[in-house]
Amino acid sequence: MIPHRSPGSTGSTTGDAATATTAEFCGHCGEPSDVGAGPASDVHHRCGERLAMEPPRYCAACRRRMKVQVTPLGWTAECSRHGMLAP
């Protein structure tokens, strides 16, 4: 499984098209992420904290807004290109 994570996200992909090699974009704010080049940037530090309390909204690979479904005991986030992310 290829990592498809956002800063602070604990999700993993279940889609078969997850071709990203690094998290290019922040799953919370959708701005470019520097994850992979070192520790999470200050810019996205708070985003990382927020991602402990909400699902990612942007695909970390392509910045598409994902279809997110939250249920009482779980969530899924789906990018039309890169597949499904779940906790």
Binding site: A52, V68, V70, T71, G74
Partner: peptide, 8 residues
């Protein structure tokens, strides 16, 4: 209990 509508 658990999650809300759009947040956890």
């Amino acid at each position: 209990v658990g999650n809300y509508l759009t947040t956890l």
